[in-house]
């Protein structure tokens, strides 16, 4: 093992770590605001990546029909518990008119000739709205339930999404074109252009999230909800809105990380779970509460994965997931346990 190999492994570890970091941030965010341990986070990654792959090969992405289906379901739930004509009107607009308009637009476009940026936007436009819809249908009606109930629902949603993923994408995987084919030479080390894109995108996204939470009213509302749900409610912050906004952000992060990871590896309908799980290990390192610790933990997971694949590839996943045990011991020894108010 020489310096060159260490540098290459480090590069590989940091690239994957950056993607785990995004997922970890989304997991921390969702848990802080809604107390949901969001297992389906990885599915957004897989759906985003596979939608992109479908767009690249010029196929009409089947996720659009899923969006229409989700929209109809959400509309039905909204209609069932409607409070006024205005809210129904808005629900109609977002849950029925928007998916159908998007489907119509895609039907008209010749997908194979679109530039990459347009494809990215379309993939986001298709998959991201399913985040808030998912919250509306699966979690909002039981928002006050204990964490364990929310976790069970989360597992159910995950299984349903994996099944739907198999149905619409089939059992085979896909890779997408990298955003940059360039190669840079740094001494004896070759750095792929796509690696830089992944790192840059992650940093930009993390900074954007920081600015959102620190500078905007909606961001502050989410933070307030995370700190004290009842207090935030008394200040006029709607928990339903906070939940939907959180799931929207989680879906954006999920889809973007999917777009970033798809050129590096082959993504299958069920790949999201394992990648999401590594993000989860990172989120646990951050105690499901601290963003910087979670991001740092993600880089650690990435590096650990990379180096353990070099030394003991057969035990790689064992090593990565065993990391959680000392972390949990350390956390339970150093932090005071606070009973959650139910």
């Amino acid at each position: 093992m020489d310096a060159e190999i260490i540098a290459m492994l480090g590069q590989d570890g940091v690239t994957n770590g950056a993607i785990y970091a995004l997922l970890a941030l989304a997991l921390v965010l969702v848990f802080a605001v809604t107390r949901v341990i969001f297992i389906p986070q990885g599915e957004f990654l897989a759906w985003g990546a596979l939608t992109m792959a479908a767009l690249e090969s010029g196929h009409f992405p089947a996720t659009v029909w899923l969006l229409v289906g989700c929209g109809v379901l959400t509309l039905a739930v909204d209609g069932f518990s409607a409070t006024g004509r205005r809210s129904i009107g808005r629900s109609l607009l977002w849950n029925l008119a928007y998916p159908l308009a998007l489907a119509g637009l895609l039907w008209g476009l010749s997908l194979a000739e679109l530039p990459t940026a347009a494809r990215v936007l379309i993939a986001l436009a298709i998959v991201v709205p399913m985040g808030p819809m998912l919250y509306r249908v699966a979690f909002q009606p039981v928002a006050e339930a204990p964490v364990l109930v929310l976790l069970i629902i989360s597992v159910a949603v995950h299984l349903a999404m994996v099944g739907l993923g198999l149905l619409i994408f089939g059992p085979e995987g896909s890779r997408t074109q990298p955003f940059s084919e360039a190669q840079f030479e740094l001494g004896s080390l070759m750095i792929g252009g796509h690696t830089l894109v992944v790192l840059a995108a992650s940093v930009v996204l993390i900074v954007a999230l920081y600015l959102f939470f620190d500078r905007t009213l909606y961001g502050k509302a989410l933070r307030a909800t995370a700190i004290n749900r009842n207090g935030a409610r008394l200040m006029g912050i709607s928990p339903a809105l906070a939940g939907r906004l959180t799931f929207f952000l989680a879906a954006v992060i999920g889809v973007l990380s999917g777009l970033l990871v798809a050129p590096i590896t082959t993504i299958y309908y069920d790949s999201g779970f394992l990648i999401g799980l590594k993000g989860f290990v990172a989120a646990i390192i951050g105690g499901l509460a601290s963003y910087p610790l979670a991001a740092g933990g993600a880089i650690l997971v990435g590096l650990l994965e990379s180096f353990s694949s070099f030394w003991a590839s057969a035990f790689k996943d064992v090593i990565v997931f065993t990391l959680i045990i000392p972390v949990l011991m350390w956390r339970s020894l150093t932090s005071h346990h606070v009973e959650e108010e139910e």
Partner: peptide, 20 residues
């Protein structure tokens, strides 16, 4: 002799080890 999982995001490390 290197191993990897079907869903792994990368086999860079294993490839490096084999090449070396």
């Amino acid at each position: 002799s290197e191993r990897y999982g079907r869903a792994d995001p990368s086999v860079q490390a294993q490839a490096l080890k084999v090449i070396s």
